[in-house]
Write a protein that binds this DNA or RNA. Structure first.
Lengths: 206, 206, 206, 206
DNA sequence: CATGAATGAGTCTTCATTCAT
DNA sequence: TATGAATGAAGACTCATTCAT
C-alpha cells in the first residue's frame, strides 16, 4: 500500500515536472510555440511518455490554466483574511492581480488563450476555478455594501464582474503598451495602476 | 508618371481586395482558420500572387489590425464632432466601442492576437493607429477637465489609457463570459455595460 | 516434476486467459483495434506480463486463428459422426461453416488477416490445423465417392479444396455485400446459401 | 486553353505516377505497409506534394481499387463480345478472373481490404464499379438461361453472385495454399481451377 | 505580373516492445 | 514471475513560403 502511495506521488511529481517544462517552453517560445516535442525535449523524456501523463496537448493547457487560476485564488484568499475594510480589500485585490501578473505573465497568456479561441471549450474544472475567483470578489463587494461604503445602487455581482474585466484589460494594456507608454509618455506602470485604482474607488464609493 | 500612378492605384486596389478576402475568410473560419490558401481561393488569385502584394501572412494580419483600428477611429471622430458635453462624449466612446465590437467582433480577435503573442511585434504603422485612438480620447478628457466636469487630479493621458484598457477588458469579458453570465446569473450585456459606464462616470467626475 | 507440471498447467491457463481477453477485446474493438494495452487491461495484467506468455502480438493472433480453426474442426467432427449419407454430410459441412461464421464472425477476420497480409507467415501449427480441416472434408468426399454418389471424375482432395475455397468466398461475399444484396436486390442470405449448396450438389453428383 | 488542357493532362499523369508508385510500394511492403512516406520516397516527391493530388491516403486506396476493378471489367467485356456460347462465356469469365489475379495479385489484396475492414466504406464510384462487374455476369447468366443451357431454377442474379463469391474464394485459396498444395499434395493450380470450373459447369447446367 | 506546383519542417498521436526494479 | 514506466519509430496530415515558368 505504501508503495502504491509512493508511486502515486511519483506519478504526480512527474506530471508536475511536465507541466513545469511546459511553462518553461511557453516562456521561451510563447504560448503558441508550445509543442509536445519541445516539452519532451525540455523534460528529457520521449514524446510518447508525455502521453502517459496527459491525454492531450489540450489537457496540459487546461491544467496549466487551472493551476494559474488556483495560484491567483490563493492570493485573493489571503486578502480576504486581512483585517482591512472591505473597500480596502477590493483595492488590494486589484493590486494583487497586478503583482501576480508581474510575477507570472504567462498566466495572462493562458487566460487569453481561452478567451480568444472560441473553439477551446473550458472543462468543468476550469469553469469552477473561474467561478471561484468571481465568488471571492462578489463576496467582498457584498460585504462592502453591507458595510455601507459601497454605492448601494451597484449590484455586487455586476461590480465583481466589471472589476474583473477591467482589471484584466488594464493588465493587457500594461503588457502590450507598458514599454511604449513609459518611453513616449513617461507614464509608469505604477502611475497607471494607481490612477486606475483611484478611479475605481471613486466610482464605487457611496 | 501617370501610368506609374495608375499602377500604384491598381496595386493598392489589389491589396485591398486581398485584405477583404482575408476578412471574409476569417469571418467563416475564425482567426485561427485563416490561411494563405483560403485567401487565394477567395480572391481567385494564385497563392504565389498573394506574396507579390504582401511580404508575409503576418503583414496581412497587421494591416488588418490597422484597418480595424481605423474604422474605430472614424467612429470616435464622429463622436468628437458631436455637440455633447465632453463627459458625455467620453461615455459615448465607451458605448461606441461596445457597438463596434458587436458589429465586428473579428476586430477583437485581431487585437487579442497581438496581445497574446509576444512574438508578433507591432509595426510602426500599427503603433501610430493605436496612438491615434488614444489621442482622441486624451483630447476629450483634456477638454472635459478644462470644462470643469473632470476630477482635476486625474491626468487626461492616464485617464484615456485607463479607459481604453478597461473598455477592452470589459468587451473580452462579455465575449467570453457573456453567455454564461446571462444564463447562470441573469446578467445581460446591457446591464453590465451600463453599470460599467455608470461606475466610470462616478469615478471620473469632480 | 509434479511442481513443474503444475507450473506448466498454470502457465497454460494464464495463456488461455490472455487469449480469451484478446477475443473479448476484438469483439468490441474489431480485429484492427486489438492492442497489447487493451489485452493487458482486460486481463488485469501488466503490459510486460503479456510478453512473458507470448513472444509477440503476432503469436497471439496466430494462436487465436488456430483456436478458431479448432472450434470449426469440432463442428465438422460432429457432422462426420452423423448417420447421414456422405453427400448430405458434405452439405451439412457447408451449412455448418455458414452457421459458425454467423456465431463467430471474428474467425473470418482472423482468416482474412492471414490471407491478406503476405508478411504474416503461418506457423507449423497453424498449417496443421488448416490441414486437419481439409482432411475431414477429403475423408467425407472420399467416402461419398466410394458410396457411388459422387462423380468419380473428381478427385476427393481437389473437391475438398474447392469446396473450402468456395465456402470461404461465399461467406465473405455475404459479409461484405449481404446488406446491400438484401436491400437492393432483395436477396436474403438464406437464398444465397441454399442456391450455393444446391449448385454444388448438382455439380458434385454423379 | 491548350495550356490548360496540357496542365490537366500533366496533372492526371502525375496522379497516375503516384498511383503507380503506390502499387510498387504495396508490392514490396504489402497492402498494410503502404504509407504516404513510402509513396513520396518512391515518387521522389515531398510528402506534402502527395496531398496536392489526393485528399487522403484512403482516396489513393479507393482509386486503386476502382482501377483494379476497371481492368477486370475490360477483361470481362472482351469475353462478352466473344462468339462463344453463353455457358462458355461464364467459364471464360472464371478463367479470366484467375489469369487477372495471376498477372496482378495486388488486386485481390485491395478487394480484400474493403471486405475485411468494415470501417472502410466504399465510395459511390467504387460501388458502381463493383456493380458493373456483377451486371456483366448477371447478363451472361440471363442469356444462358434464355439459351436453354442453364438450369431454369437458378436465378441469374443469385447465380452471378454465387459465382463471384466462389471465384474470389478459390483465388484466395490458391494464393494462400497454392504453394503448399503443389508441394504436399501435388495439386497444381491448373488442376484446381479446372476442377472448379468443371464442378460449376455441372452444377449450373440444365 | 501571375501562377500554382512543390516543398519539408512541423504537428499531434499511437503502440509494440523493452527493461530496471 | 510480474510490473508498468519509458521508449521512439512510425503514421497521417497541414501550411507558409519559394521558384521555375
Amino acid at each position: 500500500m505504501n508503495t502504491i502511495e509512493r508511486k502515486n506521488i511519483e506519478k504526480e511529481n512527474r506530471r508536475q515536472d511536465i507541466l513545469d517544462a511546459a511553462v518553461t517552453v511557453m516562456k521561451s517560445h510563447g504560448l503558441h510555440g508550445l509543442s509536445i516535442d519541445l516539452i519532451a525535449h525540455e523534460t528529457n523524456l520521449a514524446k510518447g511518455t508525455i502521453y502517459l501523463y496527459f491525454k492531450n496537448k489540450e489537457e496540459i493547457l487546461s491544467i496549466l490554466t487551472i493551476r494559474a487560476r488556483t495560484l491567483l485564488i490563493k492570493d485573493f484568499q489571503k486578502i480576504e483574511k486581512n483585517k482591512e475594510s472591505n473597500i480596502e480589500q477590493l483595492k488590494s485585490i486589484l493590486k494583487s492581480n497586478y503583482l501576480f501578473y508581474k510575477k507570472n505573465s504567462l498566466y495572462y497568456d493562458l487566460v487569453s488563450l481561452y478567451e480568444v479561441n472560441n473553439r477551446m471549450t473550458e472543462t468543468e474544472e476550469m469553469q469552477q476555478s473561474g467561478e471561484k475567483i468571481m465568488k471571492i470578489v462578489v463576496g467582498i463587494a457584498g460585504r462592502a455594501r453591507e458595510e455601507g461604503t459601497l454605492n448601494p445602487k451597484i449590484s455586487p455581482v455586476i461590480l465583481a464582474m466589471s472589476l474583473w474585466g477591467m482589471a484584466v484589460g488594464m493588465l493587457q494594456l500594461i503588457k502590450v503598451r507598458g514599454a511604449i507608454m513609459k518611453e513616449k509618455l513617461n507614464i509608469s506602470e505604477k502611475d497607471l495602476l494607481n490612477s486606475f485604482i483611484q478611479l475605481l474607488e471613486n466610482g464605487v464609493k457611496k
